[in-house]
Design a protein around this nucleic acid. Structure first.
Ligand code: MN
Ligand code: MN
Ligand code: MN
Ligand code: MN
Lengths: 218, 218
DNA sequence: TATATTTGTTAGATTAATCTAACTTATTAT
DNA sequence: ATAATAAGTTAGATTAATCTAACAAATATA
């Protein structure tokens, strides 16, 4: 029976592991906004639970069990986000904080029912994959908008980060998941993208924003 | 920002207060399944929060603030039960345990949305009133089935206790909220009730079960 | 009223999650 | 290779929530 706090640590390590299998105590402490001794102490406890490998002065690494458990929490998180968005009409910028709490609810029945009501979705409202009941994650293979050449037409499929600020910004620009973007021109000076939307309006996106958008070519 | 544990204590005191405004430490400790020192200690802490009056060797009593807060947690609990039952198709015997966790979610938006989707219900799936956003509770005035005379026809409107066992028993007997019951006969020997249901089947209910059923006369 | 029982409180300990200060080990730069 | 910096660890303290053992106060009973 993992506690809420430990579940959050597990998820943090799970995400940090995507970039690099090994996770340093310092990275973990930063992600969790706690002191290094706190992260260190927690790492030891999680080792005792069999969720990760811990050796003094070495980075930690999830065990198979830890990885699976982490994925299952992510599953609950993303199913919840999908439910909040599809069934309860929340905007994609509102769902994360609530899901951060609901992901800790202890009832498989509850999440299975969500899953069923949603028709067994594979992606969350931000385009991230929902791990299956065994913790297996579908590998999606999107392109980064920043790498697309002028003249190309793409569809927005996911986000590199789903920060509220980014989501609100995209709302304002009338860009949402599934939106079709035509790259008209890339400004040499600052690498900003001039983009034509479906509604025939033209918008400008900074290179930084383009780095956050995952697309597929049409 | 009340913690989950303290919210559960608050709710416990809130319910114990319905029967008797004053609540003893022993009652509280029993309801919460903790030792008396634990309950005592918690009572002191809740006093510091301004949720209750506490004086050594005296029973505790909720403050206005405590009563309101307690009612708001009950509101979240019952809205959740209603949502689980109406929107997510859970049986009335399945909703309590999940609601016991979800009631602690920290998002007014979440519960307001539930409320809206449900069409602002006033009763939960067990017939208990849902406190309003100010913590005000509608006073329902049902009769106890045990007090009804033979020949009378009544509608089931609520339950004195919503234990899972009772709910499963009622499921088996095909009795649900709104069911119409005609009292055919009361056995003098054991006070058992012979009852005719809408589907024309006749069932027998012990006096104890009748004590748990709240009805209105038709 | 005296005694027994119940109720409530104190004291002291434990576990989880956190902190700061001080120290050690490892890594990086000169 | 040494010194400086960064990363990781230990030690000791704190707060919330819990326990048991022992004691005190209130209530009930004979
Ligand atoms: Mn999220
Ligand atoms: Mn969380
Ligand atoms: Mn309930
Ligand atoms: Mn609860």
């Amino acid at each position: 029976m993992p506690t809420q706090t430990k579940e959050n640590y597990l998820k943090a390590i799970y995400f940090l592991s995507q970039e690099n299998i090994d996770v340093s105590i310092t990275e973990l402490s930063k992600k969790m906004n706690v002191s290094k001794p706190t992260a260190n102490n927690m790492a030891k406890k999680m080792q005792e639970k069999g969720w990760l490998f811990y050796e003094k002065y070495k980075p930690v690494k999830l065990t198979i069990k830890g990885k699976r458990l982490g994925a299952l929490i992510v599953r609950k998180h993303r199913l919840t986000e999908m439910f909040l968005s599809q069934v309860m009409s929340f905007g994609w910028e509102e769902v994360h904080d609530i899901a951060e709490e609901i992901e800790h609810i202890n009832s498989n029945l509850f999440f299975d029912r969500m899953d069923e009501i949603l028709g067994f979705p594979t992606l969350d409202p931000h385009g991230s994959p929902i791990p299956d009941k065994n913790g297996k994650v579908l590998k999606v293979n999107y392109l980064n908008l920043s790498t697309i050449k002028p003249g190309q037409k793409v569809r927005l499929c996911g986000l590199e980060n789903s920060s509220k600020d980014l989501l609100l910004f995209l709302n304002k620009k009338k860009i949402k998941l599934g939106s079709v973007l035509s790259i008209l021109h890339i400004e040499k000076f600052d690498n900003s993208f001039e983009i034509l939307l479906e509604n025939n309006s033209t918008i400008l996106l900074t290179f930084d924003v383009c780095l956050s958008l995952l697309v597929e070519e049409l």
